[in-house]
Amino acid sequence: MLKLENVQAGYGNIIAIKDINLEINEGEIITLIGANGAGKSTTLMTISGVISARAGRILFKNEPIEKKPSDEIVKLGICQVPEGRHIFPQLSVQENLDMGAFLRKDKANIKKDLQYVFDLFPILAQRKNQEGGTLSGGEQQMLAMSRALMARPQLLLLDEPSMGLAPLVIKQIFEIIKQINTENNTTIFLVEQNANQALHIADRGYVIENGKITLSGPANELLENSDIQKAYLGI
């Protein structure tokens, strides 16, 4: 479904990702794990077209998208929940969700999807008219994910959904990621520092170090890999 071939990107003089190759098939949960500054978020921002790729190709359903602007990429069905959630602070929860469906015109289905995310996260229904900036961290993560779901994505990019959250909330978030994947057949690309949780729900995983993919394979094999255990799982 999505294929990155030798993708290179960066900021100013800094090259953050040097040579990324990876492939995501329809219906999969794929995780990308790595340390701080390894290039995880840059990879996602490059896929979303916020940062432009300096070299290499990005194919979505065999169509090159690396030159497309971000709004066209969203239109194709690739949505991202960025690191730090990026809630619109002075828009209400409802308005934040409306923004998620910005490019859609099918009013009836939007209404249905709104009900769907309110069922997933009932707390959001209660806080509908509250400003997004006043929510707690966990609630903001729920809102950020719901906002992305409002676009009916085919491929959902999640950047560190567990960051800064209490263990119980993390567990809930990961369960819902799994649920979104099975219920809607939404393909998920999950970037995480929390390698243990991520590998437990993922089908396959990639490891990124200093802007390069150094290891990849089925998630259960990566969990057994002694290098990964030492570097990311703390075993």
Binding site: V50, S70, D71, P82, E95, D98, M99
Partner: peptide
């Protein structure tokens, strides 16, 4: 209006505005 909401969203968080598909 749609454009008004998009303007507010862009003012509050331009990166996120791009990520929800607003042509900034």
């Amino acid at each position: 209006t749609r454009i008004g909401k998009a303007m507010r969203a862009t003012a509050q968080d331009r990166t996120m505005a791009m990520l929800v598909g607003i042509n900034v």
